[in-house]
Design a protein around this nucleic acid. Structure first.
Length: 288
DNA sequence: TTCTTTGTTCCGGA
DNA sequence: GTCCGGAACAAAGA
């Protein structure tokens, strides 16, 4: 389940492997992802060169020389696989399609040097769209997004100014991409745990001291996860097929019934649903 | 067969 | 009218 750290890891891999290449051909095996792919518009990208590759929230942005950007969202199970033809300059770059079957290779972008980008997605909740680069910030998917959690805009004043009248659960606030963009269920659960706050506290009831800790913990968790190559549970792996390592640092996510890792706590991790999302917390550490 | 998963939208109730 | 949160939806595998 790719959240900000996993998408950042993918972006870094793409920068190393496909930046500045020229798009030669696009094969669309299945255009019905979350949104139907506009094949005519897609074809117009052919013969353009990749100028740069960025990430915004959980979106990968591939900026082309024709003033268009390929925007990719991985949804739940989307994967990007880079494949280099075996007989081309370096066989060690030929990667097996680890953990994914060809059946779910929906789109293949072919570049020069025999390099291919494969979009594979079992559930098809991800999508690929083309946007005008100049209009990117005002595009349908990006215009509503709140600040990046690792940016300076996401700070104590921003948090307090935007929550003092809100009567919503902390968990829901952090999951809301309009408030802060890029967090998902895993890292929200983990950051709230580290901050020793109950996920069901109403956001206007959190002390300033706790808010300061929470913001620091969100940034800390994300940075550490990026450093560890993301979390590999279910389907995530990097474009080279490498698993991330952050899942070994989980304190609460997926640990229902297990002991709290906090020294001397001995609490048992509980699971409940908040807005239909699995929520994990330690009832002893995370009082209101 | 039913449940699970995520991000987003929709809608009922307060 | 506004706010909140549960339900629904997309698809496929266990």
């Amino acid at each position: 389940m790719p959240e900000l750290p996993e998408v950042e890891v993918v972006k870094k891999s793409l920068k190393k492997t496909i930046n500045h290449l020229t798009l030669k051909q696009i094969q669309i095996h299945n255009k019905y992802l979350r949104y139907e792919i506009n094949q005519n518009l897609m074809k117009k990208m052919i013969s353009s060169k990749i100028l740069s590759i960025d990430r915004r929230s959980k979106y990968i942005l591939i900026n082309l020389s024709n003033d268009h950007t390929i925007l990719i969202h991985l949804g739940m199970t989307g994967k990007i696989i880079i494949r280099v033809k075996k007989n081309n300059f370096n066989s060690s770059f030929y990667f097996d399609l680890k953990g994914s079957s060809n059946k779910h290779n929906h789109v293949i972008f072919k570049f020069n040097k025999g390099i291919e980008l494969i979009y594979n997605d079992v559930r098809k909740f991800g999508f690929i769209k083309i946007e005008k680069t100049t209009n990117l910030d005002n595009s349908f998917h990006l215009k509503k997004l709140g600040p990046e959690p690792l940016s300076n805009k996401f700070n104590i004043n921003y948090f307090i100014n935007n929550t003092k009248k809100k009567e919503i659960y902390l968990k829901d606030l952090l999951m809301n991409q309009k408030f802060v963009s890029g967090l998902g269920n895993i890292y929200v659960n983990e950051a709230i745990y580290l901050s020793k706050i109950n996920p069901k506290i109403k956001v206007n009831k959190i002390s300033k001291k706790k808010v300061i800790g929470l913001i620091a913990n969100i940034k800390k968790v994300l940075k550490k996860a990026i450093k560890e190559g993301g979390s590999s549970i279910k389907d995530f792996s990097s474009v080279e097929g490498e698993d991330g390592n952050y899942q070994q640092y989980f304190n609460v996510y997926g640990r229902k019934g297990e002991r709290c890792k906090h020294p001397n706590c001995m609490g048992i991790i509980r699971a409940l649903k908040i807005s239909n999302r699995s929520t994990f917390f330690c009832p002893k550490c995370q009082k209101y």
